[in-house]
Simulated assay, not measured.
Amino acid sequence: MNIESRLAQIGSISEPVTGAVSFPVYQSTAFRHPKLGQSTGFDYSRTKNPTRSVLEEAIAELESGDAGFACSSGMAALQTIFALFSQGDHLIVSLDLYGGTYRLLEQIMSRFGVSATYVDTNDLAALEQAYRESTRAVLIETPTNPLMMVTDIEAVATWAKGKGVLTIVDNTLLTPYLQRPIELGADIIIHSATKYLGGHNDVLAGLIVTKGRELSEKMFFLHNSIGAVLGPQDSWLLMRGMKTLALRMQRHEANATAIAKWLQTHPMVAEVFYPALESHPGYEIQNKQSSGNTGIFSFKMKDARAIETILRHIRLIAFAESLGGVESLMTYPAVQTHADIPLEIREKIGVDDRLLRYSVGIEHVDDLMTDLARAFDAAASELAGGVKA
Score class of each variant (00 low, 15 high):
residue 241 G to L: 07
residue 11 G to L: 07
residue 322 S to R: 09
residue 37 G to E: 07
residue 226 I to T: 09
residue 230 L to M: 11
residue 68 G to R: 00
residue 227 G to Y: 05
residue 130 A to E: 06
residue 334 A to P: 01
residue 120 D to N: 15
residue 263 L to Y: 03
residue 188 I to S: 01
residue 159 W to C: 09
residue 253 E to H: 14
residue 351 V to T: 11
residue 103 R to Y: 14
residue 29 T to W: 10
residue 245 L to D: 01
residue 105 L to I: 08
residue 4 E to Y: 12
residue 69 F to V: 04
residue 259 I to K: 01
residue 363 E to H: 13
residue 254 A to F: 11
residue 387 V to F: 12
residue 74 G to D: 00
residue 16 P to R: 08
residue 239 M to T: 01
residue 299 F to A: 04
residue 281 P to S: 15
residue 119 V to H: 03
residue 101 T to H: 10
residue 232 P to K: 06
residue 75 M to N: 09
residue 154 E to F: 06
residue 315 R to H: 15
residue 370 T to Y: 14
residue 225 S to L: 14
residue 1 M to S: 13
residue 386 G to R: 05
residue 304 A to H: 08
residue 189 I to S: 06
residue 101 T to W: 00
residue 352 D to R: 00
residue 289 Q to T: 07
residue 234 D to A: 11
residue 277 L to Y: 06
residue 359 S to T: 07
residue 318 A to R: 11
residue 376 F to M: 15
residue 53 S to A: 13
residue 237 L to G: 03
residue 214 E to F: 14
residue 131 Y to E: 00
residue 367 D to C: 10
residue 336 Q to V: 05
residue 361 G to E: 02
residue 102 Y to P: 01
residue 110 S to F: 09
residue 360 V to I: 15
residue 22 S to Y: 10
residue 270 A to F: 09
residue 186 A to M: 06
residue 291 S to D: 12
residue 319 F to Y: 12
residue 364 H to T: 13
residue 268 M to Y: 07
residue 210 T to L: 13
residue 187 D to A: 08
residue 9 Q to G: 10
residue 38 Q to P: 05
residue 115 S to K: 08
residue 343 L to M: 11
residue 318 A to Y: 04
residue 217 E to L: 12
residue 374 R to L: 14
residue 358 Y to T: 06
residue 342 P to N: 07
residue 154 E to I: 08
residue 128 E to D: 14
residue 212 G to F: 07
residue 313 H to M: 13
residue 109 M to D: 03
residue 274 Y to H: 10
residue 190 I to R: 00
residue 99 G to E: 02
residue 151 T to I: 06
residue 367 D to I: 12
residue 362 I to L: 07
residue 253 E to Q: 13
residue 106 E to P: 02
residue 11 G to K: 02
residue 262 W to L: 09
residue 43 D to P: 02
residue 59 I to G: 00
residue 3 I to R: 05
residue 56 E to V: 04
residue 119 V to Q: 08
residue 356 L to P: 02
residue 84 L to G: 01
residue 69 F to S: 00
residue 271 E to M: 08
residue 41 G to P: 07
residue 226 I to P: 00
residue 76 A to N: 06
residue 106 E to M: 11
residue 233 Q to L: 15
residue 112 F to S: 10
residue 105 L to A: 03
residue 200 H to W: 10
residue 245 L to H: 03
residue 60 A to Q: 03
residue 321 E to I: 10
residue 339 A to N: 06
residue 242 M to Y: 08
residue 355 L to K: 02
residue 4 E to I: 13
residue 71 C to Q: 07
residue 126 A to S: 15
residue 69 F to Q: 00
residue 102 Y to K: 05
residue 278 E to Q: 15
residue 174 L to T: 13
residue 215 L to C: 08
residue 259 I to Q: 02
residue 268 M to S: 15
residue 374 R to Y: 13
residue 380 A to C: 09
residue 303 D to S: 12
residue 111 R to M: 11
residue 166 L to C: 05
residue 291 S to G: 14
residue 242 M to R: 02
residue 336 Q to P: 04
residue 295 G to D: 04
residue 283 Y to D: 09
residue 357 R to H: 12
residue 4 E to C: 11
residue 4 E to W: 09
